[in-house]
Amino acid sequence: MKILLSLAIGYTSFLVGQTLVMATPAPVNSTINQIKKVSFNPPPAPASEPPPGGRVRGGAKRGLCPSVQPQLTALVPYTEDTPTVTNVWGLTTEAHPTLMFYMPYAHNVAYPTEFVLQDQESNSIYQTAIALPAKPGIIRISVPQNITLAVNKRYRWFLTVDCDPQKDSPPTYVEGVIKRVTLNKKVTEKLKTATPLQRFDIYLQNGIWHEALKTLSQLHQENPKDQEIKVQWQNLLTSIRLEDVASQPLLPSEP
């Protein structure tokens, strides 16, 4: 009788243990929940300088470009001061920075596309044709080595797509301002020994948009299955209200 009682108690304990294990659900998206949410708060444009102006979306009403979603988009922070005034601008620390855009058109349509960079006096200092990619996605355009951005100077950029071969109507375009600044010595020293994710965080904390975006995009492209980097990429673009392009493919090389 004692043996039977012992067996019964042991079996009951086993069932209780199994029930507890089965009743404890496996963590769902536990990794995602633990990821630090990143966001970019752009520093205000200096009051002593004229408003940057600009255009973050290409739109579908200009020229003969077909209606697409997402539209041609500059991956740059922007503010909408009034319904008709938009300011598009970002900081860089590089003499030859990289800008990024979502390009909704592919090379099969053969629309002439051009990137233009102007100095503060509106002189064109760099102008180049851009080959459309094999498929829609996020492209990179870098300022070449023979063009050096001066510190504390503003430069205006344009990316235009001309869908009207007869040029009877204006091209669709995006436009904004980029300004090169320097970081203090302490931050610069940290960057020298930081990992790529740490560099991204440093740029983020110091309001340096173009290098923050470039660093994270490279990590995302090199580690497409890394859930943390993917979530941070989506959070970064969502924080500047460009969540509709966050899921678009990062194209492998500059056009």
Results as ranks from 00 to 15, higher is better:
P144E: 02
D162V: 08
Y78G: 14
H107L: 10
N108R: 11
E189H: 09
E121C: 05
T86S: 15
G176C: 03
G90H: 10
N123Y: 01
K153W: 12
T128C: 12
P144K: 12
F101K: 04
V187A: 04
V177Q: 06
F101D: 05
E114G: 13
N184C: 06
N206C: 05
F115D: 07
E114H: 14
V116H: 10
I130E: 10
N108V: 12
N146Y: 09
A129E: 14
H96R: 14
T160A: 04
L204C: 01
T98W: 09
G207S: 01
P170M: 00
E114R: 15
A129C: 13
P171C: 00
P196E: 01
T98E: 08
F101A: 02
T193F: 07
K190I: 05
T128D: 13
I208V: 07
I147D: 00
I141C: 13
F115T: 09
L91H: 13
Y155E: 03
E121F: 08
L191G: 03
R154S: 08
A150W: 12
V187T: 13
K167W: 04
R180P: 02
P112T: 12
Q205F: 01
L183I: 03
F101G: 05
W209K: 05
Y173H: 07
Q198S: 01
L159I: 11
Y126T: 12
Y102F: 11
Q205W: 01
K153V: 04
P144T: 11
P83E: 11
P136H: 10
N206M: 01
I130W: 11
T82M: 14
D162R: 12
N206W: 01
T160R: 10
W157K: 11
A134M: 11
V161R: 03
T148L: 09
T82N: 15
V85L: 15
K186S: 06
I138L: 12
V181A: 03
G90T: 12
L159W: 08
Q145C: 08
V109S: 06
L197N: 06
A134L: 12
Y78A: 15
S124T: 15
S122R: 13
M100K: 12
G176Q: 03
M100H: 12
R156S: 00
V85W: 14
E121Q: 13
E189Y: 05
E189L: 09
T113N: 07
F115H: 08
Y102L: 02
Q166K: 14
V143D: 03
T113W: 06
V181T: 09
P196H: 06
P97S: 00
Y111R: 07
L197G: 04
I141V: 15
V116D: 02
V177Y: 04
D81A: 15
R140P: 14
Y173P: 07
L99I: 02
L99V: 06
H96K: 13
I202Y: 00
Y173W: 08
N152F: 03
L191H: 07
P196Y: 03
R156W: 00
P171F: 02
T172K: 06
W209V: 02
Y111M: 04
Q120E: 00
K179G: 06
W209L: 00
N123A: 00
Q205L: 05
E121G: 05
T188M: 07
V109D: 03
R199K: 09
P77G: 14
V109M: 05
E121I: 10
I178V: 10
D168S: 09
E80N: 15
E189M: 04
C163K: 05
M100Q: 10
I139R: 08
T195I: 01
